[in-house]
Design a protein around this nucleic acid. Structure first.
Lengths: 255, 255
DNA sequence: CGTATAATTGATTTTTGTCAAGGCTCGTGG
DNA sequence: CCACGAGCCTTGACAAAAATCAATTATACG
């Protein structure tokens, strides 16, 4: 289990203080129009690690901006297996489905303590109809999510386990600071080996073996939720990670 | 190779004749406002089976409504492998990425002769900013695409080959007529076994073995691009196909 | 016909999963 | 302070799933 440094989620006093404002759907509302989202939001919510923001099958009347913390988005299958379809980081817009009435097809589980900003789902579409810059930003955020999911799918469907694991970790590093090329630095990644397996379609024991292989090859060490990159260049190469295309794949949408 | 019935793609004379108008991003433009898209579109384009609407890495200055035919959306990997991330059917909106300047991360290959309706990419965002109902529809179409891709990912990552194949075919049947429960009817599906493999992360050889298994179990026959369902109930059960949730997963977005 | 692509099959190897058993770490309560 | 339990991690032996290799056979198309 990750040795967790206790750390309360960040909740900004108001939208003007929001550190991630420009990474979210709220981006179009700047300066004089900022009050629109400020007035629109229902409030903030803080959830402990391990809890669910929403469940599969739930009929959801809210949508969320992830303010702080890590969230796993997953599907539950009839067999009992679970597939993590995305890892959400601060700025992600959660819970939006096109059909207002449809039950959620995925769940959202907090990997760390989490803070979210809550909006009413039904009114959100009305607001979007009123502010085209908002609906366009929503479209772009969502389109970016398609790209990410397609990349994840390609990883799971077309790469052997060793590369899959290396790439997942590489992608996460990149998302954290836009650079997988840190030298021998240790980063906290709140995933268990089981999580990694659920994301990549592997069993936890095979993930374990794969991580050992990566360690023995001197590429990286992942232990107890801590990732240490031993050889950034080899990692990037092994993970088939191309920084140029990665920039488009993991971009924050900008209208 | 599928025995193809020669059949020219359908190109409507104008937007008023468009049979699939309500399934597309154009949906918000009805009656008096229909002229907006009519004036906006650059024209139609017909492409032969096997050709590419666009390629990975291409910088695309257009976006497309798929009017007629089947298209496979795929990623190419450094290893030379290819991952089909989606099968597009008429009504799909193709080529939209949030960043205007970004090269395409996926390609679009025609599985049949195809007709598309062409829009200018750059101006599309301007139009969307002008018509919030359009940008919201774009958001919904895109959000539906996220759902489809997540479902595909869960299929590839979390199910054994036999079920994967059964489910892919089941989903396609459902999309064709909203009912996988046809009895012993034959449907044309312009996929080779290699395509199925590329979609599901399997080799063509193993797909072949899997299809034989499905045939020997009396579930379905897939041969030469023709699918015959022998036992609809067993297929639905084997494919873990739940018609209720399927309705949300494969819906046409409706604003 | 002859060529090219797709489908098929069997033999074999590689990859990944399953099962089972311990070990480690951390928090909790006596 | 120690004992305990709950997750998680680790390992090894074995089984199953899927890939690879190598022909051979259809099938369509000019």
């Amino acid at each position: 289990m990750p040795k967790r440094v206790p750390q309360s989620p960040v909740v900004p006093a108001d939208c003007a203080q929001c550190q991630i404002h420009d990474k979210t759907v709220c981006r179009p509302f700047q300066g004089p129009t900022l009050h629109v989202v400020q007035d629109f939001k229902l409030g903030d919510r803080v959830l402990p690690a391990g809890s669910q923001i929403f469940w599969p099958e739930q009929e959801l009347s809210e949508v969320y901006n992830l303010l702080d913390g890590w969230v796993s988005l997953y599907r539950s299958l009839p067999s009992g297996r679970r597939q993590i379809v995305d890892i959400a980081l601060p700025g992600s817009f959660l819970g939006y489905q096109p059909d207002l009435e449809a039950p959620m097809l995925h769940g959202a589980e907090c990997l760390t303590d989490v803070a979210v900003c809550v909006f009413p789902r039904k009114a959100f579409d009305r607001l979007a109809k009123q502010y085209p810059s908002l609906s366009l930003q929503l479209a772009k955020v969502t389109a970016q999510s398609v790209i990410r999911t397609q990349g994840h799918l390609a990883n799971v469907g077309s790469r052997p386990a060793l590369i899959r694991v290396a790439r997942l970790l590489c992608e996460i590093l990149y998302r954290l600071d836009k650079s997988p090329r840190r030298v021998a630095e240790t980063v906290e990644i709140p995933l268990t080996q089981t999580h990694i397996g659920e994301a990549l379609g592997l069993t936890n024991v095979y993930v374990n073996m794969t991580l050992r292989e990566l360690r023995e090859r001197g590429v990286l060490i992942f232990k107890g939720g801590r990732l240490t990159v031993l050889d950034p260049d080899r990692l990037v190469q092994l993970a088939e990670f191309e920084p140029e295309t990665a920039a488009y794949e993991w971009a924050d949408p900008v209208s």
